[in-house]
Design a protein around this nucleic acid. Structure first.
Lengths: 370, 370
DNA sequence: TTGTAAGCGTTATCAT
DNA sequence: ATGATAACGCTTACAA
């Protein structure tokens, strides 16, 4: 018994294969591993490991010998084993609502880029704006051993925060800045952004406002924006008529339909605030197709600045968020946290009004309210 | 000696902590693991493992008991350990040129979705159209232990194929179908697609062609497309004048500039074939700004169908590739391979000409050639 | 159906 | 600076 259980497990395996004979059984392959490299280089596994991870602590001679063996054998370190031993995977997870919206795609790209620079890798998933999916994917990422997690928005599945907390996974919320939760989120202050944009319109003398917002269901950013608009209006004693408060998803076509719907009510709004670039473009195109001049007859503004916004006629006044910066900040912050450094990162990202030609003074005839 | 090395390493650890005393030292935390669950449930670790992975092989009673303990303890299995033991990570890697182009974003989204359904997760990276970066990222993914890899295009870094082969990582090339390499790639036949589109224009009587292609450097898809156009023309004895063969990246603005450049040459082309939707839109907008009518004065066609293509005036004739299908096929194929099944998957994806209004008969005055 | 314990390929802790 | 070897947390023969 005691003999059976005796020493090195490896020795056993080695002796199982008779010296260079036998059909080499079992498993996938006698793949090269750290051990093979060590043997071939005539050093211990520990030294090989060091040569890889802390070259400066290994003598030049061995370092070179090992490097050449690694090269010759084509050894690729095994991430799973390494993760198991270090309790670090070098992988970040990001759960986005979708990838097909320009801002998220840009942010994902930026995050990936930033991670790469620092030797990390990105696991990516899409929640389809569904908190339950978001939770599941975050969970799955934690199982995969992500070192940190990037989410979108402030409001998540009820159990998510507790779960992440319990599992000690550093997390940051993006695309939404809430001063109340400083340090946990990075992005624009959506409410403030639309508050300011709306004021900009108010100063043009508009009083009849409409919104083609993004659906606010499970989308706290959209909600915050809508509230920014309402707040600015309320400050002046204005409000949006119920029939002028419409919601859409993410398509030009929907923007068109909702705009038409809006412009066939009476009284008509003189200013339309849209929730995303596609709704905005749709609204502009449809208004034009209805024979209305933008901005003479109706002002239309959007959210998010994609190239086409500047290129169509008239170029569209909108809000620009540097979503790639949002991503880069998120990464910088998380990595700093992982490394125990303090995160010297701006958390609130600018949401700048890009003034172009789609918004202007309210039409005379509409100034009846005052 | 023999005593020292004797039995279970775990026993040692267990006895190291005196029975429920001492300040519990070291490491991150006495986190819950399989072992804790097993102990709490009064079963062996093997049984817990089975209860998770092959529930049907565990008695109902234990299964339930274990489930409740897992729940209570909030145990999350450790992916690294599992990967190490099974030699499967449950992770796929995808290296795309970029995420900010609609087609790749759609494909990435679809891939992620498809993987999720089957319990896999996606590692994503962007190569910036640089084969060297692509190679590095693929390499990194292999180190991370991906079970399979999704690449874009057929031509990669010289060493990549050999590397992947050596490491036995199932791989598929996407967005390019080459009948020669059937089974290793999935996507549209770019050459054929543009061959057909060009013929469509030829039938309108055009003889003076121009291209605003995507840069073909490290982009075999763009190259194939350009060649499709050339082939169709050559068949009729036509050719593109050097000054009518322009290259751009991915922006409306660049499309505009190149279009203007094209339309100030003499003779002017009567048909412009563009390499991506943004170049196309730019070309159309600029032509219009120059006072040209599309398609009366000049026909303009594009590649890839994004919503705006159908929404501007005139709606643009283009080629539609269902990039989400490309992604789904890729996943289906790889998973089938992993499971040892044969992949019942169509490899060539349709590249359909979406006929709209931006292409029409060649203007009279231009029919001089015949 | 369940338990025992070897093994997955690294890293990290000690010695030396 | 280098080497032995325990440990990382799970799966999987093999045994019972």
């Amino acid at each position: 018994m005691s003999t059976k259980h005796r020493p090195a497990t490896r020795a056993k395996r080695a002796q199982a294969k008779q010296p260079d004979a036998k059909p080499a059984p079992a498993k996938p392959a006698g793949n090269v591993g750290l051990r093979q490299v060590a043997k071939a280089a005539g050093v211990s596994t520990a030294t090989v490991s060091r040569a890889i991870n802390k070259p400066e602590v290994v003598s030049q001679e061995l370092r070179e010998r090992i490097a050449s063996v690694v090269e010759r054998l084509g050894w690729v370190p095994d991430g799973a084993a390494r993760a198991l031993a270090t309790r670090r995977s070098g992988v970040f997870g990001a759960v986005f609502p979708t990838l097909t919206h320009g801002d998220f795609a840009r942010a994902a790209h930026a995050i990936q880029d930033e991670l790469l620079k620092r030797g990390y890798t990105l696991l990516l998933a899409c929640s389809e704006y569904d908190p339950k999916q978001e939770f599941q994917q975050a969970r799955k990422f934690v199982e995969r051993g992500v070192d940190a997690l990037i989410l979108v928005g402030q409001s998540h599945h009820a159990d998510l925060a507790a779960f992440l907390d319990r599992q000690r996974v550093p997390t940051i919320n993006t695309f939404a800045y809430d001063p109340t939760a400083h340090g946990t989120c990075v992005g624009p202050d959506n409410r403030k952004a639309l508050y300011r944009l709306t004021k900009y319109l108010i100063e043009f003398g508009h009083t009849d406002f409409a919104t083609i917002a993004q659906s606010t269901e499970s989308n706290d950013r959209a909600l915050a924006r809508l509230e920014g608009t309402k707040d600015a209006l309320a400050e002046r004693g204005y409000a949006i008529r119920p029939q002028h408060m419409l919601f859409g998803r993410w398509s030009i076509d929907e923007g068109r339909k909702l705009c038409r719907q809006l412009m066939t009510t009476s009284p008509r709004p003189t200013a339309i605030v849209c929730g995303n670039p596609y709704l905005t473009i749709g609204a502009v195109l449809e208004a034009q197709e209805m024979g209305l001049r933008v901005p003479d007859d109706v002002s239309i503004v959007g959210y998010d600045d994609i190239e086409i916004m500047a290129q169509i006629a008239p170029p569209i006044t909108t809000i620009r968020v540097q979503s790639d910066l949002v991503g880069r900040f998120a990464v910088a912050h998380l990595i700093a946290r992982l490394e125990g450094r303090d995160a010297p990162v701006p958390f609130e990202c600018d949401a700048e009004i890009v003034v172009r030609k789609s918004a202007g003074p309210a039409p005379r005839s509409a100034a009846r309210r005052r």
